[in-house]
Design a protein around this nucleic acid. Structure first.
Length: 830
RNA sequence: GCCCUUGUGGCGGAAUCGGUAGACGCGUUGGACUUAAAAUCCAAUCGGGGCUCAACCUCGGUGCCAGUUCAAGUCUGGCCAAGGGCACCA
C-alpha cells in the first residue's frame, strides 16, 4: 500500500471499476426488503453547485448505509430538463434547447460520477425526452378524461419578462419565482388542474406524514388555508330578486353589519351601481385594474373604496346598509363580497373610520363594556352577544353555529368550508415543455389527442427570435393538423405544460424507467413506492411537494397505483453558505465543486459537506474546514498504510473476557462503542456530523493505542485488524473511494460497498469500570473510578468516603441521598 | 398580525430518559522535529476570583424572567431576538 494518499488517482480508478462491475445496480429479483432513497432531481443548468453536492451526498450515504444493512436499495437519478433557461439560452445563442440541455446533462453526469454517487444509471430519466413526456401527456389525458384538467378564462398571473403565465405557487411576493420581475394580472383562457378537489384530503393526510418536519407540514396547511364559516345571502333593496352572497368566518357578528363590500372585479358590480355613482365606480375600477398585485396587496397601503349607491337588507334584523366597492375585497376568494362589521374586524374598522361609516357593537367582552365613540381598534376577541335579538347573552363561539342554523332554516344562508388553495394553472406560453395534447376543431371543439398518437412531439422548425409570444407558435407544421374526430383541418394547442407537472410523477417512473407501453407498471410502482427517504431543499415545501402529493392521490383514484402519499420521510437539507450568506454568482462567494474534486478529491468534499452541521441546518463552507477534512483522510490513510503489514482480514470473533491485555480490551470497547454510536446516529435523523466526529474519535484511539505498543504480539495484531477493518467499514458510506482502495490493499474481495454493516456486542461495549459522579446539593464535588458492577449501597459508601465530599458536608445534616444506578450519587445536606 | 423553526465558548456544533455542560472539529497560543519551510506530532484554550507560580481551590455560566425538582441546556408558564412561511383570505 502506498504511503501517501493520492485521491485523484484512486477515485478515477474505482469509479471506472464500479461502472464495469455494476455494483450499484438495483436488481428486481432480490428477496431483501426494499428501500427507496431519493434526491430531488436537478434542473440541468450547466454545472453542479454545492447545494447539489450536499443534497446528493446525504442521500448517497443513506442509500449505502441501508444497503449495508441488508436492504435492496433503489437510488436513481434523473433530470428535470424542461424549463425556461434552456429556451432563453436558445434565444441568446440561436441554439436548440435540446442540444443545450443534452450538453449540460452530459457535463453534470460526469460531475455526479466524480462525486462517487451510487446511482443505478440504468433508471435515469430526463423529462424533456419524448419517451418520458409521452407519458406526461398520457397522464394529462387521463386527468382530462376524469374532469381534473379543464380550460377556463380567468384572471391569471402574467410575467412579461418570461412571456408566460404562472401558477399561484410560482408568484413570490407578487414577483416571478424565476426572474423576480413584477407579475401582472391578465384575463386569459388557460388550462388548469383541479387540485382544489383534493384540498381537504391534502390537508387531512398531512397527519399521516410522521416522517415530515412540522415546518413543511404547516407551510402546506397554511397554503391550503381551510376555514369554517357561513354564506349569507342579502337581498338588494333597490333591485328586487337580486341577492349578494357573502362568505364569513364570523357569523356571530352578523347583527353588527354596517356596510358591505364587493371586489372591483365583482361580476354583478355594474348592476349594483346606481346611475349617480356610475362615474366614480368606473373610475375606481379602472384604477384598480392598473395597479399591480404588489401595490394592491401592500400592507401599509391605506384602504380605499367608493359607494355603489345601492343597499342591502340584513335578514336577521331588517337593518339596511350601503354597498361599497373596495379593493380589499378579493374577487377570487369566497364570493368576492364581504359583510363588514367594523367593531369586530380590524380591516373593516379602518375602512369605516376613514369613510365615516357607522359602528355597532355586537360582541361584548366579559370585563368591560365597549363604547363605540372610544374604540380605537376593532374588538376581535371572544365575548358575549349583545344587540343581537334572540341571540343576546350567547357566547360568541356558540353563536356562530346558532346563527348559521337560523339562516339555514330560513333559507338565506348555509354552512361553508372555504379553502385558500386555487386550482393549478398549468399552461405555459413557452416552447421548451411538454405540449398539451389537445386539438381545437371548429366543428368538434376541444378534442384530446388520441393516445395512440402520442407523443405530440415538439417541432424543430421554430423561430426562437420572436418576442412577446411563444416560439412554438411560429411552427406551421406543429399548429396545423386535423381533427381526430371529424378529420377536418384543426389546430393544435400551443401551450406547453408547467414543468412542475413533469416533476410531479418522475419518482414513479424510476420504478419502471424503460417501459414503453405505459408510464409505469402498477405492480412495480406499488413495490417500490412510497419513497422511503426523500431529500431536497426547503424551497419546494409547497410547490413540488404539494403537486406531487396531489398527483399521487389523483393517480390512485385513476387506479394507476395503490398508495396515497408518495414520500414517507422527508429531509429538507439546509442551504450551503459561504461567509454567512447564500452562495451566489452575484455575491462572488461560490465554490466550484470541480476545483474541490481536483484539489482534494471527492471523498474530502463528501466528508466535509456532512461534517460540520446536521443536514437540516444551514452549512457554512470554509476553506479551512475542507483542509481539515483532507488532513483527516490523510491521517486515516497513514494509519492504514503504516500498519498494513500487521492487518489481516481473517478476524476471528472477539468475545468478552477473551483478551489478556487491558489496553486491547479498551480498544475493542472503543470500537464497539463507535459501531453502536455511528449506527444509531445515522438511524436517528441522519446525524452525519456526529458520525464524523466518531470517526475521528476512533481514529485517535487507534493511533494512541498503536503509539503505546512497540512490538505487536498475535493478540495485538488481531485487535489492530479488528479496529482498522471496522473503521474502514464504518467510513465506507462517506469516504467511498479511500475505503474501497484500503479494502483491496488489505486483500479484500469484491467491493467494500457490498459488505455487511458492522455489528456491535453490548458486552464488548461495556466498560469494566465507571466514573461515579458525586454531587452535594446538586453540585459536582468528586468523580470516583469504581467497578462497573457496584451496588447502590456501595456507590453510597464510595461517595461518603470521598475526602472532598466529607469537606463539603462536614458540620451539616444529611437529609437524603439519591443514588442513580451506574451514574451518580447526590447527597442533600442542610 | 398569525403560524413554524432556532437561540450553548472566538466559530461550526456535542450532550438517548431531567443526572459530569462544552464531545469532535475549526481557529488561536505555546512547544517538538527541521538549516529552514511544508507536512506531522505534543500541549493549552468558557468566564470571574483565590494562590508568588503551578498543581489546586472556589464562584458564575446554555437568549431573558419566574416555576417544578434532590438535580434543568433538557420539563412548565411568561417574555426577547433571529431566520423562514402565510397574509386586506373576510
Amino acid at each position: 500500500m502506498k504511503e501517501a494518499y493520492f485521491p485523484q488517482e484512486i477515485e478515477k480508478k474505482w469509479q471506472k471499476k464500479w461502472e464495469e462491475t455494476g455494483v450499484f445496480k438495483t436488481p428486481e429479483d432480490s428477496d431483501k426488503p426494499k428501500y427507496y432513497a431519493l434526491s430531488m432531481f436537478p434542473y440541468p443548468s450547466g454545472k453542479l453547485h454545492m447545494g447539489h453536492v450536499r443534497n446528493y451526498t446525504i442521500t448517497d450515504v443513506i442509500a449505502r448505509f441501508k444497503k449495508a444493512q441488508g436492504f435492496n436499495v433503489l437510488h436513481p437519478m434523473g433530470w428535470d430538463s424542461f424549463g425556461l433557461p434552456a429556451e432563453n439560452a436558445a434565444m441568446k445563442h440561436g441554439a436548440d434547447p435540446a442540444k443545450w440541455t443534452d450538453e449540460n446533462i452530459a457535463y453534470m453526469t460526469k460531475q455526479l460520477k466524480m462525486l462517487g454517487l451510487s446511482y443505478d444509471w440504468d433508471r435515469e430519466v430526463a423529462t424533456c425526452k419524448p419517451e418520458y413526456y409521452k407519458w406526461t401527456q398520457w397522464l394529462f389525458l387521463q386527468l382530462y378524461k376524469k374532469g381534473l384538467a379543464y380550460k377556463k378564462e380567468a384572471a391569471v398571473n402574467w410575467c412579461d419578462k418570461c412571456a408566460t403565465v404562472l401558477a399561484n405557487e410560482q408568484v413570490i411576493d407578487g414577483k416571478c419565482w424565476r426572474c423576480d420581475s413584477v407579475v401582472e394580472k391578465k384575463y386569459l383562457s388557460q388550462w388548469f388542474l383541479k387540485i382544489t378537489d383534493y384540498a381537504d384530503v391534502l390537508l387531512k393526510d398531512l397527519d399521516k406524514l410522521e416522517g415530515w418536519g412540522d415546518n413543511v407540514k404547516t407551510m402546506q396547511a397554511n397554503w391550503i388555508g381551510k376555514s369554517h364559516g357561513a354564506i349569507f345571502k342579502f337581498k338588494v333593496k333597490e333591485i328586487p330578486d337580486m341577492e349578494v352572497p357573502v362568505y364569513t368566518t364570523r357569523p356571530d357578528t352578523v347583527h353588527g353589519i354596517t356596510y358591505l363590500v364587493v371586489a372591483p372585479e365583482y361580476k354583478d358590480i355594474e348592476k349594483l351601481t346606481t346611475p349617480e355613482n356610475k362615474h366614480s365606480v368606473e373610475e375606481y375600477r379602472a384604477n384598480a385594474r392598473k395597479m399591480t398585485e404588489i401595490e394592491r396587496l401592500s400592507n401599509d397601503r391605506v384602504k380605499t373604496g367608493v359607494p355603489l349607491g345601492t343597499h342591502c337588507i340584513n335578514p336577521f334584523n331588517g337593518e339596511e346598509f350601503p354597498l361599497w366597492t373596495a379593493d380589499y375585497a378579493l374577487v377570487e376568494y369566497g364570493t368576492g363580497a364581504v359583510m363588514a362589521v367594523p367593531t369586530h374586524d380590524t380591516r373593516d374598522f379602518e375602512f369605516a373610520k376613514k369613510y365615516n361609516l357607522p359602528l355597532k357593537v355586537v360582541i361584548s367582552p366579559k370585563d368591560k363594556t365597549l363604547d363605540v365613540a372610544e374604540m380605537t381598534d376593532a374588538y376581535t376577541e371572544e365575548g358575549v352577544l349583545i344587540n343581537s335579538n334572540e341571540f343576546d347573552g350567547l357566547k360568541n363561539t356558540d353563536a356562530k353555529k346558532a346563527i348559521t342554523e337560523k339562516a339555514v332554516k330560513k333559507g338565506f344562508g348555509e354552512f361553508k368550508t372555504q379553502y385558500r388553495l386555487r386550482d393549478w394553472l398549468i399552461s405555459r406560453q413557452r416552447y421548451w415543455g411538454a405540449p398539451i395534447p389537445i386539438v381545437y376543431c371548429d366543428k368538434c371543439g376541444i378534442q384530446p389527442v388520441p393516445e395512440d398518437q402520442l407523443p405530440v412531439l415538439l417541432p424543430k422548425d421554430v423561430d426562437f427570435s420572436v418576442v412577446g409570444k411563444s416560439p412554438i407558435t411560429t411552427s406551421k407544421t406543429f399548429i396545423e393538423t386535423t381533427c381526430p374526430v371529424c378529420g377536418s383541418p384543426a389546430h393544435r394547442e400551443t401551450d406547453t405544460m408547467d414543468t412542475f407537472i413533469c416533476s410531479s410523477w418522475y419518482y414513479l417512473r424510476y420504478a419502471d424507467a424503460k417501459n414503453d407501453k405505459k408510464p409505469f407498471d402498477k405492480d412495480l410502482v406499488n413495490k417500490w413506492l412510497p419513497v422511503d427517504q426523500y431529500v431536497g431543499g426547503i424551497e419546494h415545501a409547497i410547490l413540488h411537494l404539494l403537486y406531487s402529493r396531489f398527483f399521487t392521490k389523483a393517480l390512485r383514484d385513476l387506479g394507476l397505483l395503490d398508495f396515497d402519499e408518495p414520500f414517507k420521510n422527508l429531509l429538507t437539507q439546509g442551504m450551503v453558505l459561504k461567509d454567512g450568506s447564500k452562495m451566489s454568482k452575484s455575491k462572488g462567494n461560490t465554490v466550484d465543486p470541480d476545483e474541490i474534486f481536483e484539489n482534494y478529491g471527492a471523498d474530502t468534499a463528501r466528508l466535509f459537506i456532512l461534517s460540520d452541521s446536521p443536514p437540516a441546518r444551514d452549512f457554512d463552507w470554509s476553506d479551512a474546514g475542507v483542509e481539515g477534512c483532507y488532513k483527516f483522510l490523510n491521517r486515516v490513510w497513514r494509519l492504514i498504510s503504516s500498519n498494513a503489514d500487521n492487518i489481516s482480514l481473517d478476524i476471528p470473533e472477539i468475545k468478552a473476557g477473551m483478551l489478556k491485555s487491558k489496553q486491547n480490551d479498551d480498544l475493542v470497547r472503543v470500537v464497539n462503542m463507535a459501531i453502536k454510536g455511528i449506527t444509531n446516529d445515522i438511524s436517528n435523523d441522519f446525524q452525519f456530523n456526529t458520525v464524523i466526529s466518531k470517526y475521528r474519535e476512533l481514529t485517535n484511539a487507534i493511533y494512541e493505542w498503536r503509539g503505546a505498543k512497540k512490538e505487536l504480539d498475535e493478540e495485538d495484531k488481531l485487535v489492530l485488524s479488528y479496529a482498522i477493518v471496522s473503521l474502514i467499514k464504518l467510513m465506507s458510506p462517506v469516504a467511498v473511494h479511500l475505503t474501497e482502495e484500503a479494502w483491496h490493499e488489505l486483500g479484500g474481495q469484491g467491493s467494500i460497498h457490498e459488505q455487511d454493516w458492522c455489528k456491535w456486542d453490548e458486552d464488548l461495549a461495556k466498560a469494566s469500570s465507571m466514573t461515579l459522579v458525586v454531587q452535594v446539593n446538586g453540585k459536582v464535588k468528586d468523580k470516583i473510578e469504581v467497578d462497573e458492577g457496584v451496588s447502590q449501597d456501595e456507590m453510597k459508601e464510595h461517595a461518603l468516603n470521598s475526602e472532598k465530599v466529607q469537606n463539603a458536608i462536614s458540620g451539616k445534616t444529611v437529609i437524603k441521598t439519591i443514588v442513580v444506578p451506574k451514574k451518580l450519587v447526590n447527597i442533600v445536606v442542610k
